[in-house]
């Protein structure tokens, strides 16, 4: 069964599983059928059944993993395209992102501590709201477990996608731009996908929320964690 450990096989398998999962979602149109989630479950099951270790899997996986960082750089393009929108409402946008980031991290750390979570877990949770590549980088910087962050980021995204609009209505957030920013800041690409379904204003501001909350979190999370841990 030596071929199962071949890194080209592993790369092809990962892409194939992801492609299949994405097709499945496009066919069914269900947001719980998140392709990342399905791919992770299928691949872990495959490794458990065949007995291939994660270290062996990662020999191929790291080639795919490599593209996360260029993708963060690519996010600079939509950031540039939205600079005009940011400049028009600079203070409300900026302050709302800082508030969301600070209160979110503080709440996360204290609630986790209160529930008796260990330090490794708390450090992995801090960056959970922001877009996956940035969350993983920030968790690396903080010294948490990136894999755990990755799983929670997907979970948070699904949560925001499914109930985000309902909760915002409940909280009295009715402004379309505020709703978009909140969804992007709290539940990244999955919340933003839901925002685009509602309309262009929501979608544009949610996209803004993703990028800005990512930047703000990357800057503030290490400082905040040092103060409150």
């Amino acid at each position: 069964m030596g071929f199962l450990q071949n890194k080209f096989f592993i790369i092809a398998l990962t892409v194939a599983v992801f492609y299949g999962a994405r097709l499945l979602q496009q066919r069914t149109g269900k947001s719980w059928g998140n392709p990342i989630l399905i791919s992770i479950v299928v691949l872990i099951s495959f490794l458990k059944i065949t007995g291939v270790s994660y270290d062996t899997y990662y020999e191929g996986g790291k080639i795919i993993d490599f593209w996360l960082q260029p993708t963060i750089v690519a996010l600079g393009v939509p950031l540039f395209e939205q600079l005009k929108a940011i400049r028009q409402r600079l203070w409300p946008i900026l302050l709302s992102q800082v508030a969301g980031c600070v209160f979110g991290i503080v709440a996360c750390v204290y609630v986790a501590k209160l529930c008796g979570a260990s330090e490794a877990i708390i450090l992995s949770l801090a960056a959970k709201s922001v877009t996956m590549p940035i969350a993983i980088e920030v968790t690396n910087t903080l010294g948490g477990i990136p894999a755990l962050t990755a799983a929670i980021v997907v979970f948070v995204g699904l949560f925001g996608n499914l109930v985000g609009f309902g909760l915002l209505k409940l909280f009295g957030v009715g402004d379309a731009k505020a709703q978009g920013l909140s969804l992007g800041a709290a539940s990244h690409a999955l919340g933003t996908a839901r925002a685009w379904e509602r309309g262009k204003i929501w979608g544009t501001y949610a996209s803004l929320g993703i990028i800005l909350s990512g930047i703000v979190t990357a800057v503030l999370a290490p400082l905040l964690i040092r103060v409150i841990m």
């Binding site: 969301g100 709440a107 529930c115 877990i121 949770l125 909760l167 915002l168 709703q179 909140s182 709290a186």
Partner: peptide, 21 residues
């Protein structure tokens, strides 16, 4: 702890961002 902290702080991010804006 993971589930509770994640849900609570997600609510906080949604509310804090929307209200501040």
């Amino acid at each position: 702890p993971i589930v509770i902290a994640t849900l609570v702080s997600t609510l906080v991010v949604l509310a804090a961002t929307g209200w501040t804006y």
